[in-house]
Design a protein around this nucleic acid. Sequence first.
DNA 1: TTTAGCACTCCAACACTCTGAGTGCCAATA
DNA 2: TATTGGCACTCAGAGTGTTGGAGTGCTAAA
Lengths: 339, 339
Amino acid sequence: MIPDRSLEVLRAIVQDYIASKEPVGSKSLVERHSFGVSAATIRNDMALLEEEDLIHAPHTSAGRVPTDKGYRLFVDRLSEVKPLNASERLAIENFMVGSADLDETLGRTVRLLSQLTNQVAMVQYPTLGKASVRHIELIPAADTRVLMVLITDNGRIQQHVIELGTAVDEAFISELRAKLNAALIGAALTDVAGKVKGIAAAMKPDLAKLANLIIQNLLDQVDANRQEKIILAGTSNLAKRKEDFPGSISPVLEAIEEQVVLLKLISEMQAEQHGVSLRIGRENTLEGLTNASVVVSGYENQGSEIAKLGVIGPTRMDYSSNISAVRAVARYLTKTLGN
Amino acid sequence: MIPDRSLEVLRAIVQDYIASKEPVGSKSLVERHSFGVSAATIRNDMALLEEEDLIHAPHTSAGRVPTDKGYRLFVDRLSEVKPLNASERLAIENFMVGSADLDETLGRTVRLLSQLTNQVAMVQYPTLGKASVRHIELIPAADTRVLMVLITDNGRIQQHVIELGTAVDEAFISELRAKLNAALIGAALTDVAGKVKGIAAAMKPDLAKLANLIIQNLLDQVDANRQEKIILAGTSNLAKRKEDFPGSISPVLEAIEEQVVLLKLISEMQAEQHGVSLRIGRENTLEGLTNASVVVSGYENQGSEIAKLGVIGPTRMDYSSNISAVRAVARYLTKTLGN
DNA sequence: TTTAGCACTCCAACACTCTGAGTGCCAATA
DNA sequence: TATTGGCACTCAGAGTGTTGGAGTGCTAAA
């Protein structure tokens, strides 16, 4: 395998490159780190690292730059997670106080994360996955419309307007609301479909039709846990780091504008070590993100993961800091949701 | 005043500059347009325009570029609104079909607008301004929480979770709901504060306290018509046009990320001719947008303007096309909301 | 008022050189 | 065998000249 000192050299290269944004050469390396060997020896190590495709020289007489593979080895084996400093902790504590509802909490979270990391931050709204029904409300809205509100025990509220096509009968709506709630409160979302089957059948034909319409809508709503939502913040950080993105930042901007694409990406990412999942450069199958890295962590409610959050930045990012920031914010959000 | 031919020259300069992105000189001007005079004459006209601060030479021996003032004169007096072509009309028609609720309609609208113009598009959610209450719903959500839903007759639905700090009494909630609805349905939002005054006072002291809490929340909700919402699309178009923004695009990205700032900006913009309002370059008091232009139009429901939509792009944009696109989309949205 | 002509300006592109940081290789060394 | 100093070599980038062309302002004549 690769000898220890060579790995140390890789670590030094990654750290120096992240700090200086310049390809790093053997001489400056021995100056800044105390390896106890000469530049020539370092050069031998670098030749080895290059053979392993862990570093790469932009041109013949230039210093070296880590490859995606090099970054990967770095985060997997060489980097320690940097603990947050006091001011960062304080920022987290302060940012969260006094946010009442889910929208606001997540809104604050995403801004916090982007401030902490100086990257693009994203927070996914809780999925309905393992949640259960807390309450269903039907509200006559206009002459022929009903507003349905679905509240789940993870705090998510979904609403949808249903067009009935006929005048709303308030008594009927009340009855249906009562029946739905009786059947569904406490039921897992995955069980909703089974539990509503009988409801419409037990009604008079003309009402059954309406009831079916509404129930179908409810099922759509439940089923729409795929059609999830992500909020972003700090997009302007991309432009500030545009020299870190070879080519242009617009493919990145395009990619993150497509919610569907983003959701697919983070749903594929499963927590690795430290509870954090990483995609580095070309590990992203996504076209636009081949020069970007994604750091993601799940956050929980009632003991199970309900959604994810993370940051997106250039492959040349400070992985240690970003990983710890993402992890800390995820934990903090979990804690906040617990109340 | 400025003679007619000079104005024609200005128009030609603006058009050529938008098309070519190069400073335009006297010679190429006479080649591409049939002024019937020589380049030397055009040069005299250009000298005049420069004196009036309508055009400007980046350096001594370069062509001319319109100033903000030049663009302003162009849009105010020289440009005709370009009618949409067939495919653009079709795009509008197709894009809108089958969108049921407000969220989806506005979501589609903003994407449509950004596609049509290749700029950053924005759509403001309807303000509560002239709207009136259609329905108020109170739903016990968790042990100590109540979800309040406020539905207004312009289709907007606002929801908020209220933490009561004590166990929810369902009967009390029902009573309060009934009272609120009795007092408020049909009332203009501006009158809500006045109409709820007596409600809490007529209750038993311990309940009055809770009622007050909820009512205060309702008032916040109503009052929060300042705390409005804007959705954006096509941010990546900025990066594609980054050479049009001297310096960097990040101040622009920052500016549009700040909802509050954007809302303030568009609320200041009052419709001028064609029902469209423009801010060109430094006319934007906003720091980050001095190299950008903003095109905004209001859209209506039930005969009165309820919110605005528009695009943001470089000062060197195709004003004719963008103005007509913004106008057309605003009209179409007005029409859609009418149903 | 318009025009042709002319001298002038200046950017952009290109070619060229130079320098310094960095490399690979090799023979000597511990 | 691993390490080292030395050396020749490479190359991007910064700096310098040179040139061409597009564009200008001015002037005198039509």
